[in-house]
Design a protein around this nucleic acid. Sequence first.
DNA 1: GAGCACTGC
Length: 706
Amino acid sequence: MKVHPFNKRISPKVVRLEDNEKSYDDSDDEHDQQYVSKAALNAKAKSLLSVRETLPVYQNSDVILEHIRGNKVTILIGETGSGKSTQIPQLLLQEATRGGIKGAIAVTQPRRVAAINLATRVAEEYGCNVGSTVGYSVRFDNRTHATKTKLKYLTDGMLLRELMLDRKLKEYKVVMIDEAHERTILTDLILGFLKHLLLTTRPDLKVVVMSATLQAEKFSHFFENAPILFVEGRKFPVETFYVSQACDDIVDATVRCCVQLNSGEQLGDILCFLPGQEEIDKVVDILNKVSDHLGAGVPRLVALPLYAALPPAAQTKVFEPVSGFRRKIIVSTNIAETSVTIAGVKYVVDSGLRKCKVWRHQLGLSTLLTVPISKASAAQRSGRAGRESAGKCFRIYTEQDYGRLPDQSEPEIARCDVTAPLLMLKQLGVADLVNWKWLEHPGRDAIVQALQELYMLGALDDAGNITSDGRTMALLPLAPHLSRVLIEAHKNGCLSPVLDIISCLSVENLMLNPPPELRDDINARRLAQCPRGSYYGDLIMLKELYDLYVQLSSPHDRKHWCAQMAISARGFRSVIKVRAQLQGYVNSLKWHAQTTSIPLPADKAEIANILKSFLTGFPKNTAIGMPDRSYRTTLHGETISIHPSSLLFSASYSVSPIKELPSSRAPAILYTEYVFTVKGYARCVSRLELEWLQQLRPTALSKQAL
DNA sequence: GAGCACTGC
């Protein structure tokens, strides 16, 4: 075995981690709301104080407060471990109770779990129950009190939702944007809107942007050269090594690196970063096989995969410590870079690659590309080795290659579909989107394309102003296309089944990909249990699955059925939550329609109404069957294939279970997703009749809508 | 007859 020597050393890069990251938990049940007595709370808070006093932010509190008091906007570089997310909000809270600040403090987070954990921690430190003075607000879980809560942790999506209901954010005196360097679309939008507020109706608002080092200048520049404050973190050194020559087989190189590291370094777990599931499964497999052939003086290897699509039970395994003369190797996607923190990691192996979804706005399709990471990402990954003690990071790329990496990854807004963000801005009263002060301009083409899309969906009128339907669409927690479908379903009198289907569509990874050996069995079961779906396609299949699921009464039966059907049980529990939330929204719209769920009617016209409702939301996502059995897209005439994960794909190879609905190729198809891998694939596919396409509004498919 | 990084309302 040829071994690449890790002989080049650079100055240790040091990063320490926050305590606010995801604790991986299978149960998504809300925690018990326990009221703890004042005395017990005070005792707990007192015991935590000594730890807090050692935090860098705490020690520099006077300087930080002075800056925030003296400036409208403060950019704060709080290195990880500085205590910025927990301590600064508390300093401001104390100031507020002394009368220095009137109004509440909002702290945004990109992830739900972070918001919940931070609020819980800070409430303990402050000596109150969560939901009183300190609270949080995330989707499906609001623990705030209308008048008592003075410090609110919330997801950035939630703050935007609040913005839509109250454009001035009257409730707040201070808004802190945490993890701003991650540059999610939502944070970008919030920052743009805060800038707008400061210049117009809320010059009194205090804004604190918390970020990692590399983006601080950009934020400062965006906010008229706001001062940048630097607070050091507590950190352990991480030594970084590079390979001396580039390698083309990343799986092989990762395995070699782990084996070499295992025999040469003291005990401590290894965390490997690879781009995707395929590479991860290969590496795990090889490492576990290699482990049996290691020499006597060398620890055995326990390799474990980690990626989001993994069943929860397999995910929790990575947190269990291994005992004896063994070394745990976690082989992970980007999920371990920000979303998940694993204790015990002393070594990091970094492939320098990640997968990135890129939206092609001209084509309306998405592709998943493997791309090099940024320098910021590389630092974040290596930092995972220095959480508990000094660590080492092995980069499977050369130092020259590192030098060529971009400083930052391209912000999300530059590579995503901006239809939903633009509708949000329109709802917030931004008339001129092209000249809106973007932190990062998504590009004129992307904006024009998205505006056309919104016009086509009836969210904007000829003048580009938001319509009343558009306002409804912006308020629903759905992609604009799905909101359109819901409005249409109401007109077509099929709101209830469409609510069921849309709830299923809103949950990622609901339908699992069965392993190859089970694939035929699972497909057969899905076909047998969804006779109408076998004919009408995946949307109707989802409704049939929904009906089957809710008929099962015990959690045990539901879990068992999900396993049988290769459906995520956890996912289906979310479906029920989403369904309830959407029903709440719809009821508040006073549509006076049936919203509670009822079983799918047998009537053909009713099913046609459901599919026609979806057609109105996705007129571009249609294709027509050709004599050669291929499908061509309605808009551009490109060849598109039904993805093998679709029920219509399996159905074309089997006999229909219902006599009245004999198997026949769909004359036209509707799909909710268009992805390009080796060729163009339609995913989540339904059957259309040709005349339904002809009945579409003429504007629906026009290319020059604006 | 195919593969899918990660969030958020």
